[in-house]
Structures are given as structure tokens and as C-alpha cells.
């Protein structure tokens, strides 16, 4: 703030006093506002993190007694150092093989969701973007509706849609086939398509159905924000719509696509509700993802220490993805 250059000493003194008062006021404000906020943040955000990081070095179950009353660590909840992590690489116990399997499933799930989601939502966004505004809003709303609904309702809905005897999907298939067709979309472990279990694909489809709307909105907004003159210039030069997309829109969209991909990937890694309700990990753990395994270990089998260690692996994955995302964010800001 540039105060007037010509001020008399009296005024100057006054401003000094005022400023000091102001600083005092700011300090008090800081104390009043920051202290409770910080305590709040510490109790509900920092403490859980520190605790989580501690638990992964212990063999812990809340049912057993520890030395201290607060954390309940030690004694029957012994310190085991890095042995959970060692076990992850060496042991062949049930919990470790279940961890490996669920990690693999999570990777599979995310790597299926990512390209399909981006491709589909981008296509839809391109189509929607090129129609008149009123229709655009209508279509966007329709595709956005699933995003708004709770994943539990979505799972129950899809569960019934895919019911082998009473579901719509098999009923439609029967009509097309001309004969009764019963496929167990969610519980037949023997079915696979291109090496991917059908149950997994089904879960991916249900997830995509609910999740597409997000990226669709981001892409439509990004498309609308593209500088119009490029496209107009290209059109005057006689470019086809495909060329227009391939050589102008797509390169301009790259930063958005990259960023959206990472958001999509992160949330795909954290999928839980839909799968828990739809298959609960079955058939034969074919759809058991990492978070489901963590949940079961922590709350069902009282292996909280191991569950914590698993969470840490999940954290590392998400962390690496987030670092990439921040990089890209910075790039976009430069751009």
C-alpha cells in the first residue's frame, strides 16, 4: 500500500501507533482463531496420521491390553518393527497373499477404469459440446445424475439389474438371443473376457456409469474454454472435424486430460462402497480391492497393525500419484 509521500511527522507518529495497535490486534486475532483451529486440526487430522504411522509397527488389536491406557500399545500389542512390511515381501500366509491379490486387483481395476473413463467422457464431452446450449444442458444433466446418487444406491440398483434370474440385463439378452440366457455377472468365477474376470469387468462398468459425469463436466468446461480463433482458422483452412480435434483440441486439452487422469486414478484406488455392496470382494476374491482388504483386516479380523501397514502402501501409491499431479498442476499454471 502506497501511503501518500507527503505526511507530516505528527501523522506519521499516529500511523505508527495505529500500526502497532493493529499488529497487536492481528496477534490477538491469530491467537483467537488459530489456536482452536489448530487443536481441532491436530485432534482429528494430525493425531490419526501419527497414530496410523505408529500402528503399522505394532501387532495391534483394540481388544488386547497395552501398557498405556491411551494408545494401548505394548504388552499384548507388541512392537514388531518392520515385520509387517517384511512379511509383505516374504511371507506366504493367508493375510499376505490376500494383500497381494487385493493390490493386484486394485491395479487392475484402476488401469481398466482410467482409459475407459477418459476415453468415454472425452467423447461424450466432444459430442455434447457441439450441440446447442439448451440440449447441452439437458444431456449434461442426464449424464451427471449418477454422480449425485449415493454409491450404495447405485450398487443396489446394479445388483438387481444384473441379477441372474430377475435382472434386466439377462432378460434383454434372452430377448436378443431368442432363448433363455442366464449369466452370473457378479458371481461366476469361471467367466473371463480377455483374461479379466467378468465380475471385475462388471464392477468396472457399474463404477464407470457412476463416475463418468465428473470428468464429463470437467472436459466440457475445458472445451468451452478453448480459444475459438484456432478452430475457426482451421475451419477456414478446410480442416475436417477429426483433424480439428486431433491437431488442435486434443493438444490444447493435454494438461486437463493429464490432471483429470490422476484424479480419476486416485479415486479408483480408493473404491470401496460400490464393491462392498455389490460383490463384497467375491467371487473367490476376484473383485477384492485394497481398501476392502484393509477394512476387513482392521475391523473384521483385528489385524489393525497389518491393516495400517497396508494403508501405508496405499498411501505411498496415492502420494506418488499426487506428486505427479502437483507437477502437472504447476505446468498448467505456467501454461
Amino acid at each position: 500500500m502506497s501511503l501518500s509521500a507527503h505526511i507530516n511527522p505528527q501523522d506519521f507518529k499516529e500511523t505508527l501507533v495505529k500500526r502497532r495497535l493493529r499488529n497487536a490486534g492481528q496477534k490477538r486475532f491469530l491467537l483467537q482463531a488459530l489456536a482452536p483451529l489448530f487443536i481441532y486440526f491436530a485432534v482429528f487430522s494430525l493425531l490419526p496420521i501419527i497414530w496410523a504411522l505408529t500402528l503399522m509397527f505394532f501387532e495391534y488389536s483394540p481388544r488386547r491390553d497395552g501398557y498405556d491406557a491411551l494408545l494401548g500399545l505394548g504388552k499384548d500389542n507388541p512392537f514388531v518393527g518392520l515385520s509387517h512390511f517384511k512379511a509383505m515381501f516374504q511371507s506366504s500366509s493367508k493375510e499376505v497373499s490376500s494383500f497381494h491379490l487385493s493390490l493386484k486387483n486394485s491395479l487392475l481395476f484402476s488401469s481398466l477404469v482410467l482409459p475407459l473413463n477418459i476415453a468415454l467422457s472425452l467423447c461424450l464431452a466432444l459430442l455434447i459440446e457441439s450441440i446447442p446450449k439448451r440440449l447441452r444442458v439437458l444431456f449434461r444433466t442426464l449424464f451427471f445424475l449418477p454422480v449425485l446418487s449415493s454409491s450404495v444406491a447405485v450398487a443396489i440398483m446394479w445388483g438387481f439389474l444384473l441379477h441372474p434370474q430377475h435382472g434386466l440385463v439377462n432378460s434383454l439378452l434372452s430377448t436378443f438371443n431368442g432363448e433363455l440366457t442366464i449369466i452370473s455377472w457378479l458371481s461366476d468365477p469361471r467367466l473371463s473376457f480377455l483374461g479379466v474376470p467378468v465380475a471385475m469387468l462388471t464392477v468396472v462398468v457399474a463404477y464407470l456409469w457412476q463416475d463418468l459425469g465428473y470428468n464429463l463436466i470437467i472436459f466440457t468446461a475445458a472445451l468451452q474454454a478453448l480459444p475459438k480463433q484456432f478452430m475457426e482458422a482451421a475451419q477456414i483452412d478446410g480442416a475436417t472435424p477429426w483433424q480439428c480435434f486431433r491437431f488442435i483440441k486434443l493438444p490444447l486439452l493435454y494438461p486437463t486430460i493429464a490432471l483429470t487422469s490422476i484424479f480419476t486414478l486416485i479415486s479408483a484406488f480408493q473404491v470401496f462402497d460400490l464393491i462392498e455392496v455389490l460383490t463384497n470382494g467375491g467371487p473367490f476374491d476376484q473383485t477384492k480391492v485394497l481398501v476392502l482388504d484393509i477394512y476387513q483386516n482392521a475391523f473384521r479380523f483385528e489385524r489393525m497393525g497389518f491393516a495400517s501397514a497396508e494403508s501405508f502402501v496405499l498411501f505411498m501409491i496415492v502420494f506418488l500419484l499426487s506428486v505427479m499431479q502437483l507437477r502437472l498442476l504447476r505446468q498448467r499454471w505456467n501454461y
Binding site: 458371481s187 468365477p189 469361471r190
Partner: peptide, 8 residues
Amino acid sequence: VLFNGNQN
């Protein structure tokens, strides 16, 4: 496959 603990 059709009749088990999770389905039917």
C-alpha cells in the same frame, strides 16, 4: 454359481 451364499 447361481445359488450360493451371495446370490440366491
